[in-house]
Design a protein around this nucleic acid. Structure first.
Lengths: 129, 129
DNA sequence: CTTGACATACGAAGACCTTCGTATTAGCAT
DNA sequence: ATGCTAATACGAAGGTCTTCGTATGTCAAG
């Protein structure tokens, strides 16, 4: 039943995935235009990366149109979980609380965000009863 | 005043760093013995990695003894911050609360840990006043 | 002093990542 | 049809990471 044994995306691949999550299904041209604004890059570079990602099944590709349409294979949340779990295991020895506390203490978190996080903790405690 | 522009350690390098953090200053033999228990590897592989890490300044090396003694350059907390900040930026668009909430919801966190996290949030809110 | 155990240094292979140039093909306007 | 634009396919260079074999050096025991 495993649908989740995809390779961990590299940094460049993750940039592309983020564009696809934000835009939804997109052509190479779409992704290139978006990425090129912040970070100058070559069109064929993006194309090649996306072709490789299709080989790896990180993205799905629809070839009906001349300009193929790409779509992230996994939803954003699932990939975030994957990367977070990986870091949790690799750098924190599996201790989620240490990870969370470090994230809270190092990154500046707004009051509003703190409220939301507290609410989530409340819910978890309730459910854990 | 920058003391923090070290390269992000790779997966293998992080494994070695974790041994050094746990054991304190150690020889290649020490690290090899530790790693080899969980994951069969070659002695010279570990040696080479640690030499490269010394070049990159990820570790400091004391050559007074015949068996050189290695020590992590940065404390564990600082490297965790670095990796977390990197992931935060790369996969969460800088939203710390989304990262924290995802970590909380996906990893199972004990009641005791939840209490600690809540206390930390309290402190942050106090300080933010 | 010779040998054996064990240390570092070094080179190189193989895998992957990123980048880009070039070739080829598809569609459209003239 | 011809040619222009824009798309995909492909190969290869250059970099990094990981692994390991081999060479070399050092120390101590016999």
């Amino acid at each position: 039943m495993r649908r989740d044994d995809l390779p961990k995306p590299t940094d460049s691949e993750l940039e592309i995935l983020r564009v696809l999550w934000n835009r939804g299904p997109s052509t190479v041209r779409d992704v290139f235009d978006t990425l090129n604004e912040s970070k100058p890059t070559g069109y064929t570079t993006v194309l090649k990366l996306m072709q490789i990602m299709a080989d790896k099944k990180l993205v799905r590709r629809n070839e009906e149109q001349r300009a193929h349409v790409y779509e992230a294979q996994l939803p954003e949340e699932q990939t975030q979980n994957q990367l977070l779990g990986d870091l949790l295991h690799r750098a924190f020895g599996g201790s989620a609380s240490r990870l969370v506390m470090r994230a809270l203490s190092s990154a500046k978190t707004s009051k509003q965000e703190l409220v939301e996080i507290r609410r989530m903790i409340d819910e978890m405690e309730d459910r854990a009863k």
